[in-house]
């Protein structure tokens, strides 16, 4: 049985600046990283591998340099990696992206039964949290979003029990397999690659599937298959907050005021 982890290579957003003139991201010289949420999706897949003996496949749609990030996933313990890369996939919104990823998972499932697909809750560059649910919809898999704990996987009965973290409450949900999970960062602490695994990953093969392999209708993918388009990106103007307390001369008073405000905003509980 296979667990598929969907990962995305994103620019390290702490290092990304927006060009104020053109309104586009300045990506030059900015290093790429694995989307932080996806590192948790991968880790959870690897934990299921350790626990239940599943095989782990990682898939990613992106430009050819995404191979670097997929190799990192192999260094961490993924058994196979597939890169979905073709010019015609480019410019995709969440709908078109989920079509490509769903097709790839479908193809993987022809060789080996897929038990679970695990995605990060969202990416740090798009912040939509739509691709995971999109894949589940296309594949007609059970859709379990915002998971912060997998409580049980019953391989025999093909059932899964997870905990979802919602605002102010938790939800325990049971669903049939195959299922698609989107996970939160709290779900686990990612592992660190060992040196032998890093060295192995350097020569490991990453399969690359273009549309000649995938045979998707070009009008349903890429820019053409995307009903939404980003028109402009800009930094909101930073407004300076008001100064309400005197932390220099009356630190205690200021601290009380801060706590009161935090309680008021429901950030901490009194």
């Amino acid at each position: 049985m296979l667990v598929v982890a969907c990962i995305k290579q994103v620019p390290d957003t702490t290092q990304v600046k927006i060009d104020p003139v053109t309104g586009t991201l300045i990506r030059e010289g900015v290093p790429f990283i694995m989307n932080p949420f996806d590192t948790h999706a991968l880790e959870e897949s690897l934990r299921l591998k350790d626990k239940y003996g599943f095989r782990v496949a990682v898939i990613s749609m992106g430009p050819p340099n995404t191979v670097v990030t997929l190799k990192k996933a192999i260094a961490l313990g993924a058994d196979e990696a597939v890169l979905l890369s073709d010019r015609v996939f480019g410019g995709a919104d969440t709908l078109a992206t989920s079509r490509v990823l769903a097709e790839a998972i479908r193809r993987l499932s022809q060789k080996e039964e897929v038990a679970l697909v695990i995605c990060g809750k969202q990416t740090i560059d798009g912040d939509t949290a739509q691709v995971g649910p999109g894949i589940a919809t296309r594949l007609r898999y059970a859709q379990l979003t915002l998971v912060d704990q997998i409580q049980k996987v019953d391989v025999q009965a093909k059932r899964i029990i997870v905990r979802r973290k919602l605002e102010g409450r938790h939800e325990i949900v049971e669903a049939p397999l195959p299922a698609l999970l989107t996970v939160l960062r709290e779900i686990n602490k990612p592992r660190y690659p060992t040196v032998p695994m890093r060295l192995m990953s350097e020569t490991a093969e990453v399969m690359v599937w273009d549309n000649k392999v995938m045979h998707l209708d070009e009008s349903s993918i890429g820019l053409k298959g995307s009903p939404t388009q980003v028109r402009r990106i800009f930094s909101p103007e930073k407004t300076k907050g008001e100064i309400v307390g005197d932390g220099v001369n009356k630190p205690e008073e200021a601290a009380h005021l801060l706590v009161a405000r935090l309680v008021q905003k429901d950030i901490i509980q009194a």
Binding site: K189, P190, R191, Y192, P193, T194, V195, P196
Partner: peptide, 12 residues
């Protein structure tokens, strides 16, 4: 660190 990835978690 290199063979077992075993270290105090602060280091990750």
């Amino acid at each position: 660190v290199q063979m077992q990835s075993k270290f105090p978690e602060e280091l990750l």
